[in-house]
């Protein structure tokens, strides 16, 4: 390695340090109500680079509404979301143009759906699913797309011989891993996940969680993950937000909330987990 390359490496090392002191996402007073206490309201938080934020709460508490507001899919009634882009400038998500929002969603962001059928293109092969974001960004070399596809399949522990198979021939766990690969291929900085382990059996869940934990640490991803499964939250999340009836009732470090819940609802939630 020559001196120039060494220099670049050092700069790349130095950058994230300055980077990390500033939040990636700033959310203030966010709300969208479908009826009284249905939807979400008064949500404010900062998300830092590389941080995993878990949103837990009972069904109908507004977790998924909050996630679709955050990910630019549904305009809020009130509140602001500011995102710090790679160029280090702040973008107000909902005053930006739709073109900017879409570009963001397929480059710097990812969205992992609960049901992989919603997040994958079921009619095209696994390789095409992985390559789609790169093609949208202008990659026009088939061999390169192929190489990236194979690389990502191995990263998510899918046999590379399956690259030309349709996702419909994959098991549920494999589909979910393929969906993750499809999102991570563009090197996003922020990934939204909506119950990524829902609908999978326990052993597959464990393997998927293990894989996700590895990828999140390795790629230094910031993640907002919605789950009703406290075990998933404990394993992945650094910080938790507990929601109930459209409001955030408690926030704090994951261990703090799970081991010493303060709000009566959090206490109920934690105590309701079956102990084996």
């Amino acid at each position: 390695m020559n001196a120039g390359a060494m220099n670049t490496v050092r700069m790349m090392d130095a950058e994230p340090v300055a980077d990390r002191t500033q939040p990636l996402l700033k959310v203030r007073g966010l709300g969208k109500l479908y009826g009284p206490e249905t939807g979400c309201q008064d949500v404010s938080f900062d998300l830092y680079p590389g941080e995993v934020l878990g949103i837990v709460g009972e069904s109908g508490s507004g977790k998924s509404t909050l996630l679709s507001l955050l990910s630019g899919r549904c305009p809020p009634d009130s509140g602001v979301i500011d995102y710090r882009r790679k160029e280090d400038d702040w973008l107000d998500l909902y005053s930006a143009s739709e073109a900017q929002r879409r570009t963001l969603l397929r480059t710097e962001w990812g969205f992992v759906e609960q049901n992989p059928r919603d997040g994958l293109r079921m009619a095209v092969s696994a390789g095409a699913n992985i390559g789609e974001r790169l093609m949208a960004q202008g990659m026009r070399n088939y061999q390169q797309l192929r190489a990236v596809g194979l690389d990502w399949l191995s990263q998510v522990e899918i046999d590379s011989a399956r690259i030309d198979d349709l996702p419909r021939t994959f098991s549920g766990g494999m589909q979910q891993r393929l969906q993750i690969a499809r999102n991570l291929v563009s090197g996003p900085r922020l990934v939204f996940m909506d119950e990524p382990t829902g609908g999978l059996d326990v052993s597959v869940q464990a393997r998927l969680l293990d894989l996700m934990r590895g990828l999140v640490r390795e790629l230094d991803l910031a993640v907002v993950i919605v789950t009703h499964d406290l075990a998933v939250a404990r394993l992945l999340a650094d910080r938790l937000m507990v929601m109930r009836r459209s409001r955030v009732v408690e926030t704090g470090l994951t261990d703090q909330i799970l081991d010493d819940p303060q709000h009566p609802y959090s206490q109920l939630l934690v105590s309701s987990v079956l102990q084996p």
């Binding site: 390789g127 789609e132 088939y142």
Partner: peptide, 12 residues
């Protein structure tokens, strides 16, 4: 971007 997905499928 999706237009090339179809061509990719053809080659694959």
């Amino acid at each position: 971007g999706v237009m090339h997905v179809k061509l990719y499928e053809d080659i694959a």
